[in-house]
């Protein structure tokens, strides 16, 4: 293993992974945002877009180390994303009720503010589903990866065989 002893944070020892993630990440992030923001007019949508945005974070974590990525994206920020998505989704639905329509009846926005029906869909797709999906993907990854620390990685590497030092 070419992994140096000083790099306690980054466990990826492969320059191939590091370089390809550096090049690919901006494109996958852009593509995810495009899918989420353009979902009402082109194939794809906020679920797919949110998943790809979440996968971009996973790629970064694989290249630059899981713990540094976790510290960079605060856990509270990610859970805030998921909760915020649910709140925006519910608030949009309740707003249409407040304006005299049914739950998520976006025509109420048209009557009240002259907003196109289209914008109500965008609100729950981009503000709701995309946030929830990307946040949940990252949350699941970090929850599963908890404990997958560099020290543990070293122990696995040095023993050659696999150690099962779970509690």
């Amino acid at each position: 293993m070419s992994r140096s002893e000083t790099q306690s944070d980054t466990y990826s020892e492969s320059h191939v992974i590091l370089t390809s993630v550096r090049i690919l990440a901006p494109f996958t992030l852009t593509y995810g945002l495009f899918l989420a923001l353009h979902g009402t007019d082109t194939p794809g949508g906020s679920f797919q877009g949110g998943a790809i945005i979440g996968v971009t974070v996973l790629m970064l974590a694989f290249a630059f180390g899981i713990e540094p990525t976790r510290r960079w994206l605060k856990n509270s920020f990610i859970t805030g994303l998921v909760t915020g998505g649910v709140v925006i989704f519910a608030a949009t639905g309740l707003a249409t009720i407040a304006l005299g329509g049914a739950f998520l009846e976006f025509d109420a926005f048209t009557d009240a503010f002259g907003l196109s029906h289209h914008w109500g869909m965008e609100a729950i797709e981009v503000g709701g589903v995309a946030l929830i999906v990307s946040g949940v993907v990252v949350t699941l990854f970090f929850a599963m990866a908890a404990g997958f620390t560099p020290e543990r990685y070293n122990a696995v590497q040095e023993d050659g065989a696999e150690v099962s030092d779970d509690d």
Binding site: G39, T40, D41, T42, P43, G44, G45, S46, G85, V86, F89, A90, G93, F103, L104, F106, S116, H117, H118, G120, M121, I124, E125, G128, V129, I132
Partner: peptide, 23 residues
């Protein structure tokens, strides 16, 4: 709905309440 993707329109508008449940 003024949207051109029928799948998105079904998910977000016609059946928005279902999507809320899934979320």
């Amino acid at each position: 709905t003024h949207a051109h993707n029928a799948v998105s329109a079904v998910l977000a508008s016609y059946r928005g309440f279902d999507t809320f449940g899934e979320a």
